[in-house]
Design a protein around this nucleic acid. Structure first.
Lengths: 170, 170
DNA sequence: AGCGTTGTTGTTATGGTATAACGCTGCGGC
DNA sequence: GCCGCAGCGTTATACCATAACAACAACGCT
């Protein structure tokens, strides 16, 4: 049964030196499609914010994004502009929020339907990976049902150290 | 296997009108023991903060605690005083943090060793309950291992509606 | 074209959450 | 006495997030 759980999962921390341009352009393309589907627009601002978030596999804070965009552009935006862009990206399922860190990360691989992904977050390098976690979420659902609790949203975040960072500190 | 997961669990949202004095005094007594064990002291300030947190089965914000204590006492404390007291209580395992809400709640039943509890948080009444979730955490551990990820801390929080609030809105 | 509706962003201000840095005190051990 | 550590006060600051209102753009409609 642990096996059945593990079998739903694949290691997805990308190698440190991979061609991230591909990840990024894929993600942007999925974003275009997702916004299109909803009759919304991936505006220039939203695209900029997405590019900052999806520019790496790490979780970034809203104010980090703000600072970076401000350094690139001439004028400093208001925080709320970033948050609005992030809200739309989160609503579109392209960006997720790392609740335990008040930070945001891009979803680099589409997962169908609702959010049933385990999130792994490296405390050393800030890298974030998502794993399919159907069995875990079914366990959560069973536990909640036993407590007569109606599940709205379930959140599984694992903080620790990714493989690369474990190797690095040998 | 879903059965084996559910069987590790019992419904623990307390009835709306229970004798909370017992919960509170039990928790304070466990806190005294926990601090004693660590060679630390459950000081008056820490006791006050604990009493605010453990005074209900809901999650409360640090600034809520600050406001309430300030209304009771004469002088307004600095936020950091509350945070320091909370830190010590969290370190002692008597209070937990609800990460998805930036809030704190008391642990009203001791759970042995490390944190392997599923947290259920009602979005209507703010009540929080913890459930034993060994099977879920084993699933998480298996998933993490498959991704070569060293788990530091795993966090399972479920937001939704507790039984009482479901009944209330009928 | 003129109009209303909805989406999007700007602007200003504010609220909410958390910690840094420094100093002082009290207590126990040597 | 002296030291070390736990605990708290004080001040300041950083970080995270949203409210409220104005302006404008895109689109469909008549």
């Amino acid at each position: 049964m642990a096996k059945s759980i593990a079998s739903t999962v694949q290691p997805i921390f990308p190698p440190s030196a991979h061609d991230h341009g591909v990840c990024l352009s894929d993600t942007v393309r999925r974003a275009e499609a997702a916004f299109e589907t909803r009759g919304l627009r991936l505006t220039p601002l939203r695209r900029l914010v997405l590019e900052e978030v999806a520019g790496s596999h790490t979780a970034v804070g809203a104010y980090d994004i703000l600072d970076r965009l401000s350094r690139k552009g001439e004028r400093r935006m208001a925080p709320i502009s970033i948050y609005r862009a992030l809200d739309s990206l989160v609503a579109a399922g392209i960006v997720h929020r790392l609740e335990s860190r008040n930070a945001f990360f891009a979803c680099h691989a589409p997962h169908p339907g609702d959010r049933r992904q385990i999130v792994l977050a490296c405390e050393t390098c800030s890298a974030v990976a998502e794993l399919a976690g159907d069995a875990v979420f079914e366990g959560v659902a069973a536990a909640a049902a036993a407590a007569r609790f109606a599940v709205g949203r379930a959140l599984v975040e694992v903080l620790g150290t990714c493989g690369a960072c474990q190797a690095g500190r040998s």
